[in-house]
Design a protein around this nucleic acid. Structure first.
Length: 269
DNA sequence: ATATGCACCTGTGTGC
DNA sequence: TGCACACAGGTGCATA
């Protein structure tokens, strides 16, 4: 479910509410996520104080000091919700953390594709192979150099977290629409101008999506239970058969590498 | 290097 | 109303 803009929205909500608070309890109801939760590891959070909540690609890191962090990935269906202590247990609620000040953080994840662990932040191997953040400086140069050398489809490249980290299926499609490039184009055949377009579109789309607090087309909500609004301005994603807002052509959908690609045959070459 | 298929899970929507 | 099936925002592995 959540890509960079959704995770960033959740991060800012958690950071605002949890920073400085001590964790006073951890409850684990289901350990079988993508990786089994290590109960002892997670219990080690009790008594620690939150120094801040950061994000790397689609991962959240709750910094509890001394180089230690609580790493979370929401997979396809994970949600984090801030509630008052004593709130009733929701469906598929697998973990609950209790903080000072009667604040509770609930982790719900119907499909259980998420991931959660506690350890030294620099030792989180999940973060080691990740490519650069797409909203950091120098994206155009990074893409220019990394796209030129590969023969794959440009959409597959944007989804490859080792190449650039944080883009998922919604935003890959939206970025390529904005850049005017079809998802099936091969990277090494893109012109320098097209790569610049893709870099510019990446920044523009992701920044806009963060500003709009993410895309809620079915079941994404932030840590206060509020939906985002980027679904109101989606150009192609989930719009197969509908008219392009720019040129009026019919938006097409095609399966590629097991995932759906959406594009406008009029605006994208 | 890259592409494909599958596996991990549950929920939802569709067509019969 | 029930049932079968396709599909979903992600990642990782095994195989060609």
């Amino acid at each position: 479910m959540p890509e960079l803009p959704e995770v960033e929205t959740i991060r800012s909500g958690l950071d605002a509410r949890l920073r400085g608070r001590r964790i006073v309890g951890i409850e684990i109801r289901e350990r079988r996520l993508r990786r089994r939760i290590d109960v002892a590891e997670l219990r080690g959070l009790v008594g620690r104080r939150v120094e801040g909540v950061s994000r790397r690609a689609k991962y959240l890191i709750v910094d509890v000091g001394e180089g230690t962090g609580w790493l979370m990935h929401l997979g396809m269906s994970g949600r984090l919700l801030l509630l008052q202590s004593g709130a009733p247990t929701g469906a598929h609620e697998h973990v609950r953390a209790e903080f000072e000040g009667r604040v509770t953080l609930c982790y719900r994840d119907p499909r259980r594709f998420g991931l959660m662990r506690v350890g030294r932040i620099e030792e989180f191997t999940e973060l080691h192979g990740l490519g650069p953040e797409p909203l950091a400086r120098g994206l155009a140069a990074t893409l220019a150099c990394r796209l030129r050398t590969t023969r794959r489809d440009v959409k597959a490249a944007l989804l490859d977290q080792r190449l650039v980290a944080g883009i998922g299926n919604i935003y890959a499609n939206e970025i390529l629409f904005r850049a005017g490039v079809r998802p099936t184009r091969r990277c090494f055949r893109l012109s320098a101008a097209e790569i610049r377009e893709i870099a510019g579109a990446t920044g523009a789309v992701l920044r806009d999506a963060v500003r709009r607090r993410g895309t809620s087309f079915s079941d994404y909500f932030d840590s206060d239970g509020i939906p985002g609004t980027f679904q109101e301005v989606l150009a192609v994603f989930d719009r197969a058969g509908e008219p392009c807002r720019r040129c009026g052509a019919t938006i097409k959908r095609r399966a590629h590498g097991g995932r759906s690609s959406f594009y406008c045959p009029g605006c994208q070459r």
